[in-house]
Nucleic acid binder design. Structure first.
Length: 808
RNA sequence: GCGGCUGUGGCGGAACUGGCAGACGCAUCAGACUCAAAAUCUGACGCUGGUGACAGCGUGUGGGUUCGAGUCCCACCAGCCGCACCA
């Protein structure tokens, strides 16, 4: 055994050996653990040190579970449809599938450098027809269930990507992918009725071991609110307007009403003399971008000339039109209570509409003069006077129901999912349009509908897919009547393939079904899902939705796919010129490649350093220089073994304590997924073990072997090498994760802190659980000089920890 | 604007249920080895005062609870993230 650490030959040797003899063999007797990474987009840029972080983390957990006796599913695949490959194809005039193939080969080569225990036999690629056949099949099931439907409506349109966006992809009015300001375009598109699952998507969150932040983001996105619908009659008209409100308690304070510019039936309400003004206002609103409508908070509006009757007090209130009311939320009509709603207050102030307070704060003497949104006592509200507002809020809907003027109802912010895209590189939507039969789904036996080759991948301005120009593909026969028909030319969004890929891994070679019930039962749901937080309301919401749909189809036996979620923090790079940290990207030119680091320090060092840089869920600036620390550590371990492994002594009591404490601390921290403290723990205990070894002139074999096994998930190559150096012929991963003996953790003596008036004035060694009086007496003697002649008025003793004397 | 998270040495960060703040590592400095450098090893390393043992201060700021607060409570400041007129 050499006296230095030759990581190059060690890593090469064991990587080849594990290739031949995988360490995570199929074994149906063992309990199972499914550890999943968010599968990557095979980008041409390749992996940087930020990608490693999540992959190393999940691999450490996977190897830890292997050592704990689990059979682990740790697969990898490619989310390969989507715009980057397509844009690359347009620019370089190569087929996207060729670019994907090259990129997959390159990224796969880089992934091998991590030495993760991926089961490559289970690899999936969303762009393989054998994969997207099932993506299309799932769409057909949704169509059959009435969950996929076509609708024409104003949609988010990204002028740069030249394609529609789902609401989730257009938050803040900008394109999630390219950052362009989104415009509205009226198009007929395929939609998925995710709103039908709003309640279940909300309720299911309670059962998940996910970061609270992500659960909150999803629940805010779903945005459930409780309230009432209330009917108002339009004065001198047959028309009626139904509003949605979460504050029915304030109904008596409603002094006007506002309709969205896109309100259906607006024409029938507007009076002749106001028609021109209203039409102009509505036209102007329609040309405003959603960003303008969102950021320009100055209220605008126009009077319709019409009045409605407040159903509880008969008062006539003016009906206005204003773009601060959204057409697609609630009923598109709002009852306005300026005394108790900030927006209505602003509007009323601007247009000099009456403000009537109907709630007085509990502690107030007088009625509020400004907008007040809190709880209080009802006033100016007829029969409701004297009620508590927030109690009235709950009681009023039922009262309105009995009076026949309203009803209790709930609303959601969640909208249906715009599912079609006007681009080439995606799954064709398996639908045929027949003049005679209308919309006809492609029969399941005709799947997959293969994406045809096309001359130009370029998207169009009109919202038409490039596929529309391939006559030979578009023109087909109707499966229903046999007559001429046309294929749907839109493709699915990139999210389609990623919404169910975790199901395919469990049975990826199955050509009869997307996965067998048996395999699904065996592996699903995923035990640990590791990935970035950027998918909090995109992929993660969609995947939950798909799972629930498939559950309702009876093809999966669970309705939540991911039991535990872990979001690893992003690795950023600090830029001294701007003083800020930025995400690593090729265009910024701040990418740190793992290749140079593995060449210089080895895979084991980089794996360890990736997790040592900080808490794994926290973002972190990359700094190469710290890797020296872990490299030195591994060399220290190597030298320690080289020096002592061949002259082991019998275990000593002190070493037994250290060994058991090491096992306990590492295991506890491992379970908490605080890998940075696991590694500092390794370093701390290794230092202690080495010191003790030097002191007692040797170390026992069990301590050495325990160290190797505990290190193995982090630094598998050096661990395997040391394990074999210890004389073993089987892999270290055949071993069992060690358990500690609590009785060995009890020490005879312990050092306690001594305080005078809460200030540290010394320490003292005592026997474990020594009698209180004995401790205090000895402590007082020790502290005599610190009392400065004052007398002790109080003694506080926390057993085995601290003694504090209060003197006066 | 609303909501959430975070704030500890020169730096990354430790500190389980309130109990010796700064573990572990990086950087720096000193020493050893060397003709020299690198590597390695040993030691120092929060700030202030003192030759010194020691003393005072110290976890964003200001209050509070407690024998005792990085940790709990209140108010504020700064940074990051999410949502953005959802009635």
């Amino acid at each position: 055994m050499e006296n230095h650490y030759d990581f190059q030959s060690i890593e090469k040797k064991w990587r080849a050996e594990w290739e031949k003899n995988p360490i995570n063999k199929e074994d149906d007797v063992k309990p199972r653990y499914y550890c999943l990474d968010m599968f990557p987009y095979p980008s041409g840029v390749g992996l940087h040190v930020g990608h490693w972080r999540g992959y190393v983390l999940s691999d450490v957990v996977s190897r830890y579970k292997v050592l704990q006796g689990y059979q682990v599913l740790h697969p990898m695949g490619w989310d390969a449809f989507g715009l980057p490959a397509e844009n690359f194809a347009i620019k370089n005039n190569v087929h996207p599938s060729v670019a994907v193939k090259n990129n997959v080969a390159n990224v796969k080569r880089q992934l091998h450098e991590i030495s993760a225990i991926y089961d490559w036999d289970r690899e999936v690629n969303t762009t393989d027809p054998s994969y997207y056949k099932w993506t299309q099949w799932i769409f057909l099931q949704m169509y059959k269930m009435g969950l996929a439907y076509e609708k024409e409506m104003p949609l988010n349109w990204c002028p740069k990507c030249k394609c529609v966006l789902a609401n989730e992809e257009a938050t803040g009015g900008v394109c999630e992918r390219c950052g362009s300001v989104v415009t509205k375009k009226n198009l007929r598109q395929w939609m998925l009725k995710i709103t039908a699952y709003a309640d279940r998507l909300l309720e299911g969150l309670d059962r998940l071991d996910w970061p609270e932040k992500v659960k909150k983001m999803q629940s805010d996105w779903i945005g459930k609110s409780y309230g009432a619908e209330i009917n108002f009659k339009v004065v001198d008209s047959e028309e009626a307007i139904t509003v949605y409100t979460t504050r029915p308690d304030t109904l008596h304070g409603c002094t006007f009403m506002v309709l969205a510019p896109e309100y259906k039936g607006l024409d029938k309400i507007v009076t002749a003399d106001q028609k021109e003004a209203v039409d102009k206002y509505c036209f102007d609103a329609s040309t405003k971008s959603s960003v303008d409508r969102m950021t320009n908070k100055e209220k605008t509006g126009v009077f319709t000339g019409a009045y409605a009757t407040n159903p509880v007090n008969g008062k006539q209130i003016p009906i206005w039109v204003a773009d601060y009311v959204l057409a697609d939320y609630g009923t598109g009509a709002v009852m306005c209570v300026p005394a108790h709603d900030e927006r209505d207050y602003e509007f009323a102030t601007k247009f000099q509409l009456p403000i009537i307070p109907v709630i007085r704060p509990f502690d107030a003497e007088e009625d509020p003069t400004e907008c007040y949104t809190g709880d209080g006592i009802m006033i100016n509200s007829g029969d409701w006077n004297g009620m508590k507002a927030f109690e009235a809020k709950k009681a009023v809907p039922d009262m309105l129901d009995k009076m026949g003027i309203g009803k209790k109802t709930v609303n959601y912010k969640l909208r249906d999912w715009v599912f079609s895209r006007q681009r080439y590189w995606g799954e064709p939507i398996p639908i045929i349009h027949c003049e005679k039969c209308g919309v006809v789904p492609v029969p399941e036996e005709d799947l997959p509908v293969v994406l045809p080759d096309v001359e130009s991948y370029k998207p169009t301005e009109t919202g038409e897919s490039p596929l529309a120009h391939i006559d030979s593909w578009v023109n087909t026969t109707c499966p229903c009547c046999g007559g001429p028909a046309k294929r749907e030319t839109n493709t699915m969004p990139q999210w389609a393939g990623s919404s169910w890929y975790f199901l395919r891994y469990v049975d990826n070679h199955n050509d009869k079904e997307f996965a067998s019930q048996e395999a699904l039962k065996k592996w699903m749901p995923v035990d640990l899902y590791v990935g970035g937080i950027e998918h909090a309301v995109l992929h993660l919401l969609y995947a939950r939705f798909y799972t629930k749909v498939l559950y309702d189809c009876g093809v999966v036996p669970f309705d939540e796919p991911f039991k535990k979620l872990f979001n690893q923090g992003m690795i950023t790079k600090f830029d001294p010129t701007t003083g800020k940290s930025a995400k690593m990207s090729k265009s910024v030119g701040n990418v740190v490649s793992p290749d140079d680091l593995t060449r210089k320090y080895g895979c084991d060092s980089l794996r360890m350093y990736e997790l040592f840089v900080g808490p794994p869920e926290v973002d972190c600036d990359w700094d190469d220089s710290g890797i020296d620390g872990v490299y030195r550590y591994l060399n220290k371990v190597w030298k320690f073994f080289a020096t002592y492994k061949d002259q082991c002594i019998a275990p000593t009591k002190e070493m037994e304590y250290l060994r058991n404490k090491l096992i306990k601390d590492i295991t506890d921290r491992m379970e908490a997924l605080t890998m940075n403290t696991v590694i500092s723990g390794f370093m701390e205990y290794t230092n202690k073990i080495i010191d003790l070894t030097k002191k007692q002139g040797g170390v026992d074999r069990q301590t050495l072997e325990t160290m190797i096994i505990l290190l193995a998930p982090y630094t598998p190559h050096i661990a395997e090498e040391l394990w074999h150096e210890m004389g073993h012929t089987a892999s270290v991963f055949e071993e069992k994760w060690p358990e500690y003996d609590p009785s060995k953790l009890v020490q005879d003596t312990v050092e306690i802190a001594l305080q005078v008036n809460g200030k540290l004035r010394g320490t003292m060694e005592i026997a474990m659980n020594e009698d209180k009086d004995s401790v205090l007496t000895r402590a007082k003697e020790l502290l005599e000089s610190k009392f400065e002649g004052k007398s002790v008025v109080k003694e506080i003793y926390v057993p085995n920890k601290i003694a504090n004397f209060i003197v006066k």
